[in-house]
Simulated scan of single mutants.
Amino acid sequence: MSPQHRLTDLPATARAVIEDRTGPLTSVDMLSAGLNSPIAARLLLDDGTSIFVKGMRTDHRWVWTQQREADINRHTQGLAPRVLWHLTGQGWDLLGFEHIDGVHANYTPGSPHLPLVLQTMSSLAATTAPSSIDLKTMPQRMSAYVDDPRALTAFDGSTLLHTDWKPDNVLITGNRARLVDWGWASRGAAWIDPALWVIWLIASGHTPHQAETQVRAHPAWNTALVPSIDAFTRAQARMWESIARTDTPGQWTHHMHQAALTWAKHRQ
């Protein structure tokens, strides 16, 4: 989960692939927010419309997330920007999305964005993970971080989960929150997305009690047994420790590790 360096210019080879589909580009605004895609750009087309494009080299270790996002998109209408096309060529894998004007979510205490995020998260909880897409399950993703493998059964379920609740992945537009970057979508228990959000809320300044208070309105939160949540907090603390171990001190992953550890200690 280390950040990828964003390109500051759209490579000529990628531009050629895009313009073969869209026609001439009037302007290219390279964006820096987010983590996973070397190309992230807002493009103005010759007809005056705008689209958002993200892309990776076809030999990128995470290029599979591009296809995952394209496949998931048809099941997330209204929750995510619509995928317009998926192109490969000249060594690039490129996704074109409808462009949405918005700002990244603010998770700090008292933010007016919090109820909007929770509303979208609650809508997603009603979505069944499509069987036609090969999604990892949360037991699979957490198996290396639990004390007792029997705890993994509580993480299982049929709900489509986003799982990557970094504020950059949530766009606030008007009175709605829209979700982007679905490359880590998974299948599992419906209470897991709000549990993951708790860690981001703590990292954004909430106390564990305040963060848990925020997610109590989620329809699935109270369906989880206390031991299941406790086991999940411990697994998350270990997962973030593992991720942070490969990064230099001061990077955001260390902050997330501390937030996850704070929640795990609170649950004890």
Rank of each mutant, 00 (worst) to 15 (best):
A40N: 13
A237Y: 00
L152D: 10
P194G: 02
L152G: 08
S228F: 02
A40W: 03
R57N: 06
W165Q: 08
A14V: 08
P24N: 10
L160G: 03
P227C: 00
M239S: 12
A195L: 11
S204F: 00
P208V: 00
G188Q: 10
W191C: 10
D134T: 13
F97Q: 08
W64E: 14
H86Y: 10
D71R: 01
R178S: 08
A217Q: 12
L114P: 10
V53A: 14
R21S: 13
L44S: 15
L196I: 01
L171Y: 00
M138P: 04
T108S: 14
T246W: 03
D59V: 03
I172N: 07
P149T: 02
T207H: 04
T65A: 12
L44F: 06
N222V: 04
W184R: 13
D193F: 01
T163N: 10
G23N: 10
H255T: 14
D71G: 04
W85G: 11
A189T: 05
P208T: 00
R15P: 09
Y107E: 10
A185F: 01
D71W: 00
H60D: 15
D181P: 06
A105E: 10
P130R: 04
T246S: 13
V117L: 15
W165G: 07
D247L: 07
T213K: 09
T22A: 12
T120L: 05
I199Y: 06
